[in-house]
Simulated scan of single mutants.
Amino acid sequence: MPWVRALLRGQKIYARADEAGQLVADGGRVEIRYKPNDGRKYGARADNLKVVPGEILPDDACGPAEVVEKKEKAEGEAKKAAPAGRRAPGTSEERKAAAAKAHQAAEPPAAGHVIAYADGACTGNPGPAGLGVVVVQDGAPRVKLSEYLGQGTNNIAELTAILRALAEAPDPAQPMTIYTDSQYAIGVLQKGWKAKANTELVAEVKEALKARRNAKLVYVPGHAGVAMNELADELAREAVRARRTTRPA
Rank of each mutant, 00 (worst) to 15 (best):
E77N: 07
Y148Q: 06
P53D: 08
A185H: 03
A110V: 10
D38P: 08
G222I: 01
G43A: 11
E69D: 13
L189S: 11
Q104E: 12
A100Y: 10
K191Q: 14
P108L: 10
A224S: 15
A169N: 12
A140G: 00
G85F: 13
A88C: 07
N154K: 00
L235H: 00
N125W: 07
L149W: 10
A100R: 04
G85A: 09
I13A: 10
R247A: 15
H113M: 03
K73D: 15
D47V: 08
Y34S: 01
Q11K: 12
V220Y: 06
A81P: 01
E93N: 10
L166G: 03
L57M: 11
D233H: 15
P109C: 03
K79C: 05
P2K: 04
A15H: 07
G28L: 03
A249K: 11
K80V: 11
L145P: 00
P83L: 07
T245L: 04
P221C: 13
K12T: 13
A236N: 05
G112N: 12
R5C: 11
E168D: 10
R142S: 13
A99W: 03
A208N: 07
Q183K: 13
G54E: 05
P53K: 01
E77H: 09
L209D: 08
I115F: 08
T177C: 00
L217H: 13
N229Q: 03
V67S: 11
K70C: 14
L49T: 02
L149D: 07
D119P: 08
Y179S: 02
S182D: 04
E234M: 10
G225F: 13
G112E: 09
P170I: 12
N125S: 06
T123H: 15
L149T: 07
A106T: 01
L163N: 05
A239Q: 03
D233S: 13
R40K: 14
N125C: 06
R164V: 13
A197D: 15
D171G: 09
L49G: 04
L235K: 00
L163S: 14
G76Y: 08
R9F: 15
Q190V: 12
A215T: 00
A97M: 08
V205T: 06
T180N: 03
A197N: 14
P128Q: 06
E94M: 09
E19V: 07
A140H: 03
P126L: 02
E234R: 12
D119V: 05
A105M: 03
A185F: 10
R45M: 04
A65N: 10
N37Q: 04
G43F: 11
A118P: 12
A106C: 01
L131C: 10
K96D: 09
A165D: 03
K50E: 15
K196E: 14
V114W: 08
P58E: 09
D119F: 11
G192P: 14
Y219D: 00
K101I: 01
L217C: 14
T123S: 14
Y179T: 00
G124H: 04
R87S: 12
